[in-house]
Amino acid sequence: MSLTREDVTYVANLARLEFSEDEVIALADQLGAVLDYAETLSGLDTSKIKATEHVLAVQNVFRADEIESCLTNEEALANAPESEAGCFKVPRVME
């Protein structure tokens, strides 16, 4: 299978990336090649195989409900590209 330019554009939007026309064409090619390679997987019957989400059988790892110290407002915002009134700032959101 190969990837269409529409596929690339759709996925780019999902990933909040944008590409030039040329990049879209190149990506369709490059990703298509990787996906074609991955097609070998379809030759393997996995219908009765459980997916492995964790390689080790660790379960029930919990934390006690106890308060620990927080960052100060200054520390929280120290890396922010833009802030105002103790908050992170973004372009106006309508929704």
Partner: peptide
Amino acid sequence: DAYYKKAMQVRTIIK
């Protein structure tokens, strides 16, 4: 299903 889930199933097989 075709890619991610399949890969996680293959993971079981490789293991």
